[in-house]
């Protein structure tokens, strides 16, 4: 499966999916008016990848600074997709990074984690630079 690399823009995150290594990441900001412009291409490759990843170790890093409410909804869909895959035997570990003084991103991480039983979800405070 081809890797997916999309550089960040002013209102969309950097996407780096290395499927061979099982390392995926989303970094930056996401606030397009229409979230499907950002998440459409992501779901198009993530779904078939997770469908065929049983017994593999997959790590997904989220280092998001800000996202709008329609992106939050898309992220929720993504976590539901990952939870289903983990239920089928994909070993999924999520790292949710947030700046230590950023309560909003920490709270979002906690909100998403609440629905996850099979995915390993780590809330990680980044060290101030």
């Amino acid at each position: 499966m081809d890797n997916l690399k999309i550089p960040a823009t002013e209102r969309s995150p950097d996407v780096d999916f290395d499927f061979a290594a099982g390392r995926l990441s989303l970094r930056g900001e996401s606030y397009p008016e229409d979230a499907s412009t950002v998440f459409g291409p992501i779901f198009a490759v993530l779904e078939p990848f997770l469908d065929n990843a049983e017994n593999r170790d997959i790590r997904f890093d989220f280092e998001l600074i800000y996202f709008n409410s329609s992106s939050a909804k898309a992220l929720m869909n993504m976590f539901q997709m990952m939870e289903n895959a983990a239920g089928r035997g994909v070993r999924l570990e999520v790292n949710w990074y947030f700046a230590p003084d950023d309560e909003t991103m920490k709270e979002f991480g906690e909100d998403f984690a609440e629905d996850l039983k099979s995915v390993t979800f780590n809330l990680v405070a980044t060290t101030p630079s």
Binding site: Y31, E33, Y66, N68, S69, A99, D101, E103, T104
Partner: peptide
Amino acid sequence: TDLTTIKKVFSVFIEQAQNIIR
């Protein structure tokens, strides 16, 4: 301004502006 306040104000601004656009 502290980071949490900046984020709150920015978020409300974005949601309001996008509601106007929509």
